[in-house]
């Protein structure tokens, strides 16, 4: 089966000028996102990962390079207003601060905000709002005020607000960074549900390795360039590359590599506790012999 690439960046760059000083945030980024996949974009603060997300839904305009969305090359100057908003609808975005993206004082009114902007019929909006809230498990809070909710719940409402636009791609721009572990779990579980049950294409921007470990593919950004692409296993085993990108490998991977460096025969690309226990138990077995 041919690959169905819905987002493609070719040599994408972005820079801005402030007080006559030019700052390049992204240079020459090549990325392909396939339909229905879950991609994690990892990078330190200031690596350009949020900028990349804003390029994907045309909030920012690239200074060089090509961006292809849904099989079409994007030319900002040629784009009509309707086409621009259609792309924003298809590439939904959930942001970092849960407080700063909710518009209305009642949860369901907020979820309705997107489809209302699109001019969807009231009955259809109602259906979409109910579906979206059910999907993120917030139905019982439909009539609540957002400020009564926990961080994780607010983010789930924000996700529902995007879902109501029925997007193809959802970008999570550090949507877990301000949450506590429970809130993060809620959001990640929702993301997995969207990917596996709803077939949405997911791009998760984060600096939490354990979240990236859940993805199909990991892209590492460092100082505006892509420094690694691959499965979590492939990328996380390159601990030195991660360190130089200001990131950390999972503890188990670090432990396996420490054992391997000490001369023990263990794989260097183990990410989870189960795999680690198996490998070490094998080591003990060999030792007895």
């Amino acid at each position: 089966m041919a690959k169905d690439v819905i987002i493609q960046a070719k040599g994408l760059s972005y820079s801005y000028e402030e007080d006559g000083k030019k700052t390049e945030v992204l240079h020459g980024v090549d990325i392909e996102i396939e339909k229905g996949t879950f991609t994690a974009v990892l990078g330190h603060n200031g690596s350009g990962k949020s900028t990349l997300a804003k390029l994907f839904n045309l909030v920012l305009t690239p200074s060089a390079g090509e961006l292809w969305l849904f099989g079409k090359k994007i030319d900002e100057k040629e784009l009509s207003d309707d086409e621009l908003y259609e792309i924003r609808r298809r590439v939904g975005m959930v942001f970092q601060n849960p407080d700063n993206q909710l518009v209305a004082t009642v949860v369901e009114e907020d979820v309705a905000f997107g489809p209302e902007n699109l001019g969807v019929r009231p009955e259809e909006i109602r259906r979409r709002v109910d579906d979206a809230l059910a999907l993120v498990g917030m139905t019982e809070f439909a009539r609540h005020s957002p400020h009564q909710l926990s961080g994780g719940q607010k983010q789930r409402v924000a996700i529902a607000g995007i879902l109501a636009l029925s997007p193809d791609v959802i970008i999570f721009d550090e949507s877990t960074a301000m949450l506590d572990p429970i809130g993060r779990r809620e959001v990640i579980d929702t993301i997995k549900k969207l990917r596996y049950d709803e077939g949405k294409t997911i791009i998760l921007i984060t600096h939490y390795m354990e979240e990236a470990a859940e993805a199909d593919r990991v892209v590492v950004l460092s100082d505006g360039s892509v420094t690694a692409v691959g499965t979590p296993k492939e990328v996380f085993s390159k601990t030195e590359l991660l360190h130089s990108a200001g990131l950390e490998a999972p503890q188990i991977t670090e432990l396996m590599q420490a054992l391997s460096d000490a001369g023990y025969n263990v794989p260097r690309d183990i990410l989870d506790v189960e795999g680690g226990a198996m490998a070490i138990s094998k080591l003990f077995g060999e030792n007895k012999r």
Binding site: L255, A262, Y264, N265
Partner: peptide, 20 residues
């Protein structure tokens, strides 16, 4: 911690490097 875990496993394995 990772360092202590590595040390502890190596100790339990009988110390020193394993010439494998």
């Amino acid at each position: 911690t990772v360092e202590d875990a590595a040390k502890e496993i190596i100790r339990a394995l009988g110390g020193g490097g394993n010439a494998s």
